[in-house]
Write a protein that binds this DNA or RNA. Structure first.
Lengths: 171, 171
DNA sequence: TATTGTTATACTCTATAACTATA
DNA sequence: TATAGTTATAGAGTATAACAATA
């Protein structure tokens, strides 16, 4: 079995020599111990970095967060979607989706319409101005991603996404 | 210039055929639009997945979060560290580190001792029981990482970390 | 003047439970 | 009974500003 050939323990044995530490703002040298060998650590750091970059580019011009932009994209791709389906797709609780939808509707980006088939549920879709705003947001988002991943080749970027998709399991 | 050869726009042109959608819990088919081509989306999903796995393994036995465990590792690797240095290293605000240190000290994992050189600052270090607990936590953490990345080969795992480190810029 | 630790405040996210109206 | 949308609540995390003691 190929994967059992190197366990975490084997990987991190004698790791001290490889983790000399890093200089922080104050100029003091701080060691990070095992952390540089920990995937979760790098995921967290990268997430923080990309969120910050998004905020300063896409967010600054369009007043949007990655989460809300993701919602808008799913709404665009599935006109008439019910709130509960949106919640399932984005893996957030039904109760949490309410203020998200309120926010987006309050900004005139989407509308809630009563479902013709089920009196309990609402159909969600983009407004015209929502579609226009989303077009701009997506342009900025793609530019943001290009800038953020400029340090990678196209092939590396593809592979990174492929590895992440395998880890979180699809889609 | 190799990297300019494929922009986000080129990458996502005609992407519709590749994003048929995915089945969600309710059985309905939902399309995710551009999201499967977006790095930030996969980072977020992976982060959620690894956090959940951590909580159910390391967190369940040792009542710890990834963030707190990271703090403990940096404290272990730098005995006598000042709170402000820890805050800098972990890139959180000084004010935010206070309740973290309070928590860890309240559980007897670390101690705050007055610095001999600077009456304003405290030196932080692990207690004996903190060191014992941390040893166990690290064992569980490495096992958790092995399990979570079992779908990757050792080489793929190494490359994933390398790509992430380049994106967030070091350490 | 600047830095260390601290407190207070506010705002976002998240998770949970409960309620109503429909199915 | 189960589901859709909603509300209320509590906890974690984050960001900002201000303060006293010390450098």
């Amino acid at each position: 079995m190929k994967r059992a050939a190197e366990t975490a323990e084997a990987r991190t044995a004698g790791v001290d020599s490889r983790t000399a530490g890093a200089q922080i703002r104050s100029g003091q040298r701080v060691s990070f111990g095992l952390l540089p060998q920990v995937l979760g650590y790098h995921l967290r750091r990268t997430q923080v970095a990309i969120f910050r970059h998004f905020s300063r580019t896409v967010g600054a011009e369009m007043d949007i967060t990655p989460g809300l932009l993701g919602m808008l994209q799913v709404i665009e791709a599935n006109p008439g979607l019910a709130q509960s389906r949106l919640a399932e797709a984005m893996e957030v609780d039904r109760s949490a989706i309410v203020k998200v939808v309120d926010q987006l509707a309050g900004r005139g980006l989407i509308v809630r319409e009563p479902s013709p088939h089920d009196k309990r549920s609402y159909s969600i879709r983009l407004t015209d101005s929502g579609a226009t705003a989303l077009r701009r947001m997506k342009t900025l988002m793609l530019r943001h991603e290009d800038e953020f991943t400029a340090v990678l080749t196209a092939e590396e970027r593809r592979q990174l996404i492929e590895l992440l998709a395998r880890l979180h399991g699809g889609r």
